[in-house]
Write a protein that binds this DNA or RNA. Sequence first.
DNA 1: TTAATTGTATACAAATCAGTATATAAATTA
DNA 2: TAATTTATATACTGATTTGTATACAATTAA
Lengths: 188, 188
Amino acid sequence: MSVLKDRILLVATDLFHTRGINSTGVDTIVAVAGTTKMTLYKYFNTKEQLIIEVLQKSQQDFQSWLNEKLNTGTKKPAEKIQLLFDYIEEWVNSSAFIGVGFIKASAEFPNEENAIHKLSSLQSREFRQFIGKLATDANIKDADGLALQLSLLFEGAAQAEQMKRGSGAIKYAKKAAKILIDGAIKQS
Amino acid sequence: MSVLKDRILLVATDLFHTRGINSTGVDTIVAVAGTTKMTLYKYFNTKEQLIIEVLQKSQQDFQSWLNEKLNTGTKKPAEKIQLLFDYIEEWVNSSAFIGVGFIKASAEFPNEENAIHKLSSLQSREFRQFIGKLATDANIKDADGLALQLSLLFEGAAQAEQMKRGSGAIKYAKKAAKILIDGAIKQS
DNA sequence: TTAATTGTATACAAATCAGTATATAAATTA
DNA sequence: TAATTTATATACTGATTTGTATACAATTAA
């Protein structure tokens, strides 16, 4: 990938999170990235396409980071799901955390027919399925039900953390997750 | 309150939820409300003021509805907190539900210095304190901790329901809430 | 009847928005 | 060296944004 395209993606990601997507114009993005609109529109056909690529890259980066954390060493499936919220906490508390893209995007583009909204919805569903696979591997009976509950805690905590940094919401989400996981394991 | 001001508030509330706040211009609002910009600006100094009043009215309406539900009949404190998510489910599943204003607003106005963001943050905190009072009245030990966890489930479920109507997220949030509440009561 | 209030109609200002056209400079490749 | 690619600079279009100015109509109160 071109270094300029990469820089535009990075700058756009940051500005979208700190100022909002609709409130960030392409003029601002190119000014901060130190390039011009002509270059931006060479790499991205429309602003919508830029938004979509920003969302995709953000989610890919997070998933890659999470997968690496979960797959280092030799962890049993039951351990992995117990560790999930530890890693999420680590991620949320890192200085790099600026929010969950698909949560914000779905709020800014509420129309369910909109391409950006559809992508947000897909990413939310995929992450829930990812948790569901962890739960299935751990031999949990109602794996999908638990996955949905954990995803609610995740999205709720991310929302709270976006609203007020350092709220400590993720700490209590982790505690709640442990209770729900332990309860689900007992029933299996 | 003037009938016209009321109509503008209603129309703005609906449009903000279905199209997004920043994507809804005042021209659209007055056109749908069947009035003119001059009238809108007679009742609201700025668009920001309109947004703020929309958020305040939405939260007041929800809180009033919830209080009435909780205070009809003679319910013990422990019953009230157990019933909380039943009422939230009823509210979310009603046709009138269009989302939680302060969740969307905080996403569209991420800057913590922004007046709209501040109000969103305040409303979220007030609702959590409201749950905290229910928990305290029910003699729960870590009332604030439980309130935070329940608010995460609430915001997560609302977020999920905004993203995809009829997702059934609230049903599983209710189940999770029951587990967390029962666990907290045991420890008291 | 006169005065005040309330709302409408319309046009406007000034800024910002996404996206394009054109021309030029620099760097890379053949 | 010549040709091609990559990026810049700048100006523009046309639509949209919030908010205001001005003039007029209808209703209500004194």
